[in-house]
Design a protein around this nucleic acid. Structure first.
Lengths: 221, 221
DNA sequence: CAATTATTCAATTGATTTATTGAATACAAT
DNA sequence: ATTGTATTCAATAAATCAATTGAATAATTG
């Protein structure tokens, strides 16, 4: 008996693994980590057909990773809890540490690791308290509104050039976006440095910050 | 470009998910979390053919979750780091919280949750310091020797009946084994209670304790 | 060097997964 | 009621995965 129960349990856990075993679904989870999204919105941002996206989302739902809410004719998907972000983060850590391919991709394409020296969450928290830095959220407005780091200024990447005035030139800027592999913050830092700012990235993104239990702010409309 | 890099990264991470998407491989990881094992030993305990086991292990290796070491004609596999245990733990948490099927399996087969009231690692640590409890490791001798909780007494489950004398009858016994779903400790607690002991399970097993950074002891031969 | 043991490799078969397509729901607006 | 929109369902073809089998390596022993 005990063997079969154990196998049955592992089979259930394997459902979660299986569902994490597809790049598109991981991308969908990353978008959902920013907040609720409709199927169409997810399809667009993930570059998939709506039907295909719907099917991936249903698999995520059956594995207990996402939940749904109907609003009129739209169905909004959301992560079923912060523990899902934690799970993805654990996967990311293992990948970073043990898969050479990942190291190489980051090294080659996301500008060089060293020159960017990302700031760790704990460190940023300290410096925030001392008021030493300007925190810059380069995600789209809606995502910022749904939740952001305390005191963060929101300038979406594509309007960064126009709104540079909003950033004090004498303090270091720490930029963040959707997650550790979101390119928005990489681009923002590159742009800011070209303009003469001292700028660095936050090592992770908003979802990781939040799921680590660090303080966040929401913009009530 | 940024889309492709992102997709390439997610494809790499998906390799990890994919490899976690099979019950047999999860079982192999659980055994490996106890320590190094040869292919044959793993095959036997997992109930798989050697060739099949070898193939699963190679998939785990390609995904960076395990490493190998040759010793004579044997090849020993081991987890590539404690972060792998952490990853599995994150998966377990999500499954417990969001998959009704898992709840049901545990409820139905692993005796009732409530009457067993497992002890959390943090709580045990406190009570250990005060010397209030006897910690009982019911895993096989070799696994105990490779590492165990501080001050734990080792009585493998099948000799528990004979060696009951080694346990003080007036203190609560906290039993643990390989992991949260390992049945050894469930059986041990049931047996001890039949004998009139106050006994409970540790919520998780040795690997989780260790990867949480709590103190461990090794038996040098 | 021949025989033995532990592991891996290669080929095969059946099962599962992915993306596509077009049809089916389910709600909303006219 | 009719039309339109968002999502899901069902059927399919191509790709991938799992387990089995028997042969191939690689180290060990006599």
């Amino acid at each position: 008996m005990s063997f079969n129960v154990k196998h049955a349990l592992f089979t259930q856990f394997a459902r979660i693994g299986k569902v994490l075993g597809n790049a598109h679904r991981l991308a969908l989870i990353e978008y959902l980590a920013q907040g609720e999204r409709s199927v169409e919105a997810l399809a667009q941002v993930a570059g998939l057909s709506v039907a295909n996206t719907s099917q991936h989302l249903q698999q995520l739902r059956q594995a207990g990773l996402v939940e749904t809410r109907r609003e009129g004719q739209r169905i909004h998907y959301r992560l079923s809890g912060d523990d899902v972000v934690t799970l993805l983060d654990a996967m990311r850590r293992v990948g970073n540490r043990h898969l050479a391919e990942i190291d190489q991709l980051i090294d080659t394409y996301l500008t060089t690791k060293d020159s960017m020296e990302p700031v760790a969450a704990q460190e940023l928290m300290k410096r925030l308290k001392r008021g030493e830095v300007t925190v810059l959220d380069v995600r789209p407005e809606e995502e910022y509104a749904a939740g952001h780091l305390p005191g963060a200024v929101n300038i979406p990447l594509n309007s960064l050039e126009k709104q540079l005035a909003a950033l004090p030139a004498d303090r270091e800027v720490i930029a963040y976006c959707r997650g550790p592999y979101c390119v928005l913050s990489y681009d923002a830092v590159a742009e800011l440095r070209r303009r003469g700012y001292r700028a660095r990235r936050l090592e992770e993104g908003y979802p990781e910050w939040r799921s680590a239990g660090l303080p966040v702010e929401e913009t009530r409309h």
